[in-house]
């Protein structure tokens, strides 16, 4: 089990993505050490502390790497996240983790993989995609579907443009409202809800889907995936819940009788069948 006490890290890079969302790169405060929290698998999360403000759960959005750097993509949403956005390079942060179950990378080799992200759900999905792309030939195909509310809400825009022209994966970007625009720089996208975009994917049996979308978007997307023959066992979703402790002790995050922080946040849809209020 990782330590429950926050380890000291510093903010090494701050890269604004949209007016309210920023990518933060964290390194250990003492450079020679490696943070325990830097060892993770895509889909897991860590607890981020800002001294004086508090602690919040955040998904890893980068690929686990040798350099021990932790990437977090965070949206201003309240007390702690606003405070984080007022910090500068060199500011101290506390981290502990990694917590929870990530995406089942081990079963993905040899399959068609479809990744579906809505809004900030791109954070854990980017982590998974970057891991897949390090050994892209292992997978039959990789498709990324990413929806944002409006064109200016896309984060990781430079990467989206690279992925769009890469042969290693297929991309499909969608916005709820385009306000008349059909491309933003070199990024092209369609207009329509995410589930409509899923309908256009033409998936095959045996396809493995990984999703992280806003709570209200799950039912429509899952219906669409099932319609295309994707099996319940092969749909993996990352769920959000209010979390305080991250380690199964504060009793806030139950999904049925499972705990999102320990049994999730990534669940297979088959494991959620029949659980009221799960999605």
């Amino acid at each position: 089990m990782p330590p429950l006490l926050p380890e000291s890290a510093i903010i090494d890079e701050i890269i604004p993505q949209t007016p309210d969302t920023t990518l933060f790169r964290l390194l250990p405060k003492e450079r020679v050490k490696r943070l325990h929290a830097a060892d993770f698998s895509p889909g897991q999360f860590l607890q981020l502390s800002l001294p004086g403000a508090g602690e919040i759960p955040v998904s890893y959005c980068g690929a686990p790497g040798e350099d021990g750097c932790i990437e977090l993509c965070i949206k201003k949403a309240g007390h702690v996240t606003e405070f984080l956005h007022s910090r500068s390079i060199g500011s101290v942060a506390g981290v502990h983790g990694a917590y929870g179950n990530g995406f089942p990378l081990g079963i993905m080799a040899g399959h068609d993989i479809v990744l579906i992200a809505g809004g900030l759900g791109i954070a854990p999905i980017r982590s998974l995609l970057m891991s897949l792309l390090t050994r892209a030939s292992l997978y039959r195909s990789i498709t990324l579907l990413y929806g944002a509310r409006t064109p200016d809400q896309f984060v990781f825009r430079d990467e989206l443009i690279l992925w769009q022209s890469s042969t290693a994966l297929k991309t499909l970007f969608a916005v709820d409202r385009s306000d008349g625009v059909v491309s933003s720089g070199t990024l092209s996208y369609t207009t329509g809800m995410l589930n409509m975009a899923v309908a256009e994917l033409s998936l095959h049996e045996g396809c493995i889907a990984a999703l992280c979308v806003p709570p209200a978007a799950y039912p429509g997307i899952i219906t669409e995936l099932k319609k295309q023959g994707v099996e319940d066992e092969n749909i993996h979703l990352s769920l959000e819940r209010r979390m305080q402790c991250g380690v199964g002790r504060c009793a806030h995050c139950a999904v049925g009788t499972m705990l999102c922080c320990q049994d999730g946040p990534v669940f297979s849809y088959a494991g959620l069948r029949g659980i009221q209020g799960a999605i």
Binding site: A53, C245, R249
Partner: peptide, 19 residues
């Protein structure tokens, strides 16, 4: 029943905090 929240309070100069 043991549900809990975490609450962090800073000192006025921001150099110290208590959780």
């Amino acid at each position: 029943c043991y549900c809990f929240d975490l609450l962090e309070l800073p000192s006025l100069n921001g150099e110290r905090a208590e959780r």
